[in-house]
Computed example of a mutant assay.
Amino acid sequence: MTAALAEKGALPAPAAAPPPTARGSRRRGLDQGAPRWQIYLPLGLYLLFTLVPFYWMLLFALRPAGSNSLVPWPITGDHFQKVWSERGFGTFFQNSMIVGVASLVMTTAVALAGGYALARFDFRIKQGFMLALLASQFIPGALMLVPLFEIFKNLRMINSLGSVVIAETVFQLPLSIILISGFIKNVPMSLEEQAWVDGCGRFRAFCAVVLPLLRPGLIAVGSFAFVHSWNHFLFALMFLSSQDKQTIPVGLNTLIGADSVDLGALAAGGVVAAVPVVIVFAFIQKWLITGFSAGAVKG
């Protein structure tokens, strides 16, 4: 009956379905008929390119000295014992852990306060302040060595782990504040306003409502702060003079002699330096990806 009415003009004829676009057809073809080798081959090549240096490092660290085998057999732990006991890597590891954790806490705490101010308040120099934060990322860390050294010298903080912690925090704060500000903007202001109506002050509302929602962002910022402090070489080399205060990157540099290099000890030290970072990222990868996704969406 509907078709008859349409033929007589009483009802409009149903619109024809739009033809599929070339982009939609190509996307469906990739989703349905793409060979698996087109996906796994590039991923396999990238994985091989990434893992070969790690395998080479493990090979030198685990095989006996003087061996040319491409397989670490028989496995030996002499290189690890040498770097940990004789070369002082136990002390270097402890110092790096102190610097990394302290930098993580200080960077996250200060960036949280600064990011909240940028996200929730409007003030006259806000745009200029954001521009200054972005511009500071173009300044190499080496240019900060001399002024920071003079400051720490006047404060009598040379050869102190505190000087490295402060320098790392200052160096990482601009990017951390920008990232935290983006995370806070994604939290609706209405949630805080409801807490204010219920009698909470601004600080209490922030701790009860906003802070739990920032967990992925805080983990992302904190992980960057820890890894950067763990791997950074210049600040520790410049501000720490005694061997009992040095960190792992400086300790690795001491394994390279003027005339020869102990490859087994150097590789074992590299494994010691890499293991904590790998463990940290293995446990926080879910939160890290979530934090990056949250920070990438404009609020």
Rank of each mutant, 00 (worst) to 15 (best):
I151E: 01
S103C: 02
F206N: 00
S85A: 10
G251T: 07
I248C: 04
T76G: 03
A13I: 14
I125H: 01
T50G: 10
G299T: 11
V52E: 09
F80G: 01
L240A: 00
P147I: 10
Q243V: 13
G201M: 10
V227S: 02
W73F: 15
G162P: 06
I158P: 05
R26S: 01
V278G: 08
A61H: 08
G270R: 04
S181Y: 02
P72N: 09
A268L: 05
V83S: 06
G128L: 07
G162Y: 02
L118S: 05
W287A: 08
M106Y: 04
F129C: 02
R120E: 06
A142D: 04
L62K: 00
V187H: 00
F121G: 04
S163A: 14
H228C: 03
G291A: 09
E168V: 11
W37N: 05
L11F: 13
L48G: 10
L161R: 09
Q94E: 09
P212H: 11
A65F: 01
D259H: 15
I289Q: 06
I151W: 06
L104V: 00
A220M: 09
L5D: 09
S67E: 10
G44L: 13
V71L: 12
R27A: 14
P276K: 11
I166Y: 05
L173N: 01
S69Y: 11
F152A: 11
F121P: 04
L155G: 13
M1D: 13
P20H: 11
G299P: 06
S181D: 02
V275I: 15
L58K: 04
S241L: 10
A296I: 13
L131G: 12
R120W: 00
K245D: 04
A34C: 15
A15Y: 08
A273V: 09
F93G: 02
F54D: 03
